[in-house]
Design a binder for these strands. Structure first.
Lengths: 407, 407
DNA sequence: GAGTGGCTAGTAAGCGCTTACTACGCGCAC
DNA sequence: GTGCGCGTAGTAAGCGCTTACTAGCCACTC
């Protein structure tokens, strides 16, 4: 049924080895022979058998991308950018590598399951995007898993989640570590090595054998493209404080996610630095949602305003959540920003078009995805630290304004 | 380095055939043996070699999904739903099949390229989502290609694009065929077979040999989950007409897409049926954008209002475009809906939260994706026609209202 | 007590491709 | 003229898994 290499070889009057060489182009073949082969390929409409090829060559041209929610543009943009990089590398006619996008739904089990599936396919690289779940047991399992994959030659890139050695991921205790006070939002700054996890108990699961030195970068060869969620949130809160707000609510994402934690910690840090708000009060003004979607924002805002009717500003876990917050406020008869200011995070495409336009923190998702793709492909040499940090940027728009009364 | 079947077999004291059987579970193995094998698998952390397995079994567990824009929630939702179906089939621990999401960016060439890539991987099924490009040459090439893949045993499902036999896809002439006047928006109506392409020139490319009867369904085994873009747009326009609007602008999507054409034709049909608007006028009030994104809506609205300042309502190609339209109107000092009514299409999650909330046509993307996934997996028996049509539903919200003056 | 059939498990032949190794032919230097 | 080396192309040994076929074992039956 299917046309094989041998068929093409017969038609071109050469051996199958020659055909293989022509197609992979990694061996000198005389011009005449080459074109004869190519013609035969064309005439027979031959399409390489990927599995056979992967088996023989012990490698595949699959690249896995794990996302928490494929319907969320946040991930769509990143995934699209990663794929864009695959196309750049046109080793022949069109892209050679294929991206496998896996929707984990934020579930640790599925994350692990997909990792296995990808490993089974012998994926050449895997990019894990978005916040990680902070369950210590899962973190340990995941870390071990990723390290082993990396040691086995699979390129692993984390995009938008903390590097593997980050305290919360490598520590066995259940206690939450303080957020990372990044040295700055700059591109590929030096690793914040110093104060990080001094008493690190070498991860819970048995670390069998010395993880052979992987391609490059430290941290067992697991590369990272990091967002400065902490810094972004802090700046955003500082903006609100500067406007005069003192009753700032926070509708956070799911409690056990790194992204949630870092943003929240940045927020709290700004509050603490300013001094006008007690930790207790800040705690009271924080509501955790079950996800990063619109309805969480809606419910979160209602809960928040019930707890603290005097709230004059609401920070949302991200732009989508902010949308829900706005809807709830509007429904309660509160105007944005006259009665309550609202700010999001991420600066998704729609955020500039909401009314009022949303104040938010722009994360260069496109760029982050591209970088992650390059790291995964080996196109971009990773910095010594193995960590590339991308810039964020405050986007001040119409949804935030000074509070009506002085605060 | 890698653990193989043989290693597991040795450890369990059985032959590799037995291990294979335990893992695939398609052959009786004594309980004791099975558990011994399973333990060995566990201890060795064995992960099947997918390529080898696919090669030997002449099948793979990859399912391809082609989308026009992965950053667009429209596609994200569909893709997510398709993947959801894969997980349902837990033949073992977790999902067995893997979804490969390919971002074509709406480019015909890339569509073909990805098809080749998927064919190379011997994907078990391929789902093509979203509107198709109507270039006759490309259509012919695509049709031939899909038919051949289907004949070769790959399940092909079109989701949100017309069935293969639809006039514009099978005709060699450049002339645009009239839009499909669907019998109704009901689930799996009979195929509108009759009047379709009588003088069909058997497609441009050489149709070698009789396409062997594929699994099921007509149309060469290519299944379809269809949206009634035509009907939805017509109803939406009827709604506007009923409100009293007579100057209805249309900011359409890219001209050469089936989705664009069908929606536009539905719109025009409503106008024609109503009688109050001439075809010329309708033509004048139509602006084509270069894509389905926000900026196209923004520019389109500006262009439209320049051409026809008296416009009292604007229909957008989809919700995202509608967002851009609203932004442009707002910028021009026009209020929605007091000065100009705006309506979208698709009913994406954010549409209920815009302000004003967007009137639109709800497309059950989730359901469509799920059905497409089921068809691709063979879980859902396709109707005789091979076409499943999903319901749409008008969502009347705050962005549409009667025009200020009587029209 | 030999025959029969139902379970299990092993044997081994590929699946289609890659690639180390080998073979051939020809020009050039000695 | 012989030898060497380079540029090409063929040979064939796997890659790790699936599966048809075969074989052993045991409980029954006639």
């Amino acid at each position: 049924m299917a046309v094989t290499l041998a068929d093409v070889a017969a038609r071109a009057g050469v051996s199958s080895a020659t055909v293989s060489r022509v197609l992979s182009g990694n061996y000198p073949v005389a011009g005449a022979t080459r074109s004869r082969v190519l013609r035969a390929v064309d005439e027979l409409e031959y399409v390489v058998n990927g599995p056979a090829s992967s088996l023989a060559a012990a490698s595949s041209d699959l690249l896995g991308i794990l996302v928490n929610d494929i319907a969320d543009p946040f991930f769509g943009i990143i995934a699209g950018a990663v794929q864009g990089e695959l196309e750049g590398r046109t080793d022949g006619p069109g892209p050679r590598k294929l991206a496998v996008v896996c929707n984990t739904g934020g579930s640790p089990e599925r994350e692990l399951t997909y990792l296995t599936l990808l490993q089974r396919q012998r994926a050449a690289a895997i990019v894990l995007t978005g916040g990680a779940v902070e369950d210590p047991q899962h973190s340990a399992a995941l870390t071990t898993r990723l390290r082993r994959l990396a040691a086995g030659g699979t390129r692993i890139v984390l995009c938008g989640r903390p590097p593997l050695d980050e305290p919360a991921a490598a520590t066995g205790t259940g206690a939450r570590q303080p957020g990372p006070p990044p040295s700055g939002p700059e591109l590929s700054g030096p690793p914040p090595s110093g104060p990080v996890s001094s008493a690190k108990p070498r991860s819970a699961a048995g670390d069998r054998g010395p993880l052979s030195a992987a391609h490059d970068g430290t941290r067992g060869g697991v590369l990272t493209v990091a967002f400065d969620n902490y810094g972004g949130a802090r700046e955003l809160t500082e903006h609100l404080l500067a406007l005069g707000h003192r009753h700032i609510g926070y509708v956070a994402g799911p409690a056990e996610r790194t992204t949630t934690r870092h943003r929240l910690e940045g927020h709290r840090a700004a509050l603490a630095a300013h001094g006008g708000v007690t930790a207790d009060r800040a705690e009271q003004l924080t509501v955790h949602g079950g996800g990063y979607d619109r309805s969480c924002g809606y419910q979160g805002a209602r809960e928040l305003l019930r707890r603290a009717p005097g709230t004059t500003a609401v920070l949302a876990a991200n732009d989508t959540v902010a949308l829900g917050v706005c809807a709830a406020l509007r429904e309660m008869g509160l105007r944005v920003p006259q009665d309550v200011s609202v700010a999001g995070f991420d600066d998704l495409p729609f955020s500039v078009d909401t009314s009022p336009a949303l104040t938010t923190v722009r994360l260069p998702l496109q760029e982050a995805g591209a970088r992650a793709g390059q790291l995964a492909l080996g196109t971009l040499a990773p910095p010594p630290s193995g960590i590339v940090t991308v810039r964020h940027e405050l986007r001040l728009r119409a949804s935030t304004a000074p509070p009506r009364t002085g605060g």
